[in-house]
């Protein structure tokens, strides 16, 4: 080959090709796991969306099914965590970030509906509790391994608010006039939190700009109820 006397030492490109191939192999490994996870997040979401058509008194059935779906997600996340931790986290995290947001969302929604029998509904699970349910670390700094990022948690939290705004109207349809009040307070409290964040011009910023509309949507529901004296006393 001419490359012996030419400018290019063939070994340079052999080395590069080997590196590119290694990355491709790893990418395929991750992709396989993420595809499984994606299916499971869809299942979990379809199970949890039954909350919109289930009376509050029977919500435990939805929660039980939701917990099982979350357990399935957690098993896959464990696999993803083991594989992904072999390589620098931020080299690959865009491959699973959206799916992890969906997993976190299902955990937040299930938690809000009352996944923990010792707590009332309407809870916001902290990022630490979500991480412990998934058995992975949170917002790592000191070492490079798989974890949940703040951004993923916040994205999932915005998804939760979207879902709750829908649930506020559907609760009324199901005859539960108390829940919209609970949702209204929750959405406002989260909104107040988002307002102190200095978000840059990214997708988190764009989505968080929409929270005020969720606040208003739910306030409208509460307004409709109070106008007609439908809000339960005490």
């Amino acid at each position: 080959m001419a490359s012996q006397q030419g400018m290019v030492d063939a070994a340079i490109f052999e080395d590069l090709q080997a590196r590119v191939d290694q990355d491709a192999t790893f990418r395929d490994e991750i992709k396989e796991i993420v595809q499984v996870l994606e299916k499971q997040t869809r299942t979990a979401q379809s199970i949890l969306s039954k909350a919109h058509s289930t009376p509050t008194s029977q919500i435990n059935d939805v929660i039980t099914a939701g917990n099982a779906a979350i357990q399935a997600e957690a098993d896959t996340v464990a696999k993803l965590s083991t594989t992904a931790s072999q390589q620098p986290y931020y080299k690959w995290n865009n491959m699973w970030s959206r799916q992890m947001q969906d997993v976190i969302f299902s955990i937040l929604l299930c938690g809000w509906l009352g996944a923990n029998p010792t707590e009332p509904s309407g809870q916001l699970l902290t990022i630490e509790r979500v991480a412990s349910i998934l058995n992975i670390p949170v917002n790592l700094k000191d070492r490079d391994a798989f974890h949940i990022t703040i951004e993923e948690y916040l994205q999932a939290l915005i998804s939760l608010l979207d879902e709750l705004a829908r649930l506020a109207r559907n609760s009324v349809t199901l005859g539960d006039y108390r829940r919209p009040l609970q949702i209204s307070q929750f959405v406002k409290d989260v909104h107040a939190g988002f307002q102190i964040l200095n978000l840059k011009n990214d997708s988190l910023r764009r989505r968080s700009d929409g929270i005020k509309y969720r606040v208003k949507e739910v306030e409208d529901v509460v307004y409709d109820l109070s106008l007609r004296n439908l809000i339960p006393k005490e």
């Binding site: 703040i150 939190g193 964040l197």
Partner: peptide
């Protein structure tokens, strides 16, 4: 409901304050 529009009313403020710190460092 006015209490919650002022940030002091939200029980989630300590959590968001931690997030703000982290995100600010990241953006810097």
């Amino acid at each position: 409901m006015d209490a919650s529009t002022a940030s002091g009313g939200s029980p989630f403020m300590p959590m968001f304050e931690k997030f703000r710190l982290e995100l600010d460092e990241h953006h810097d």
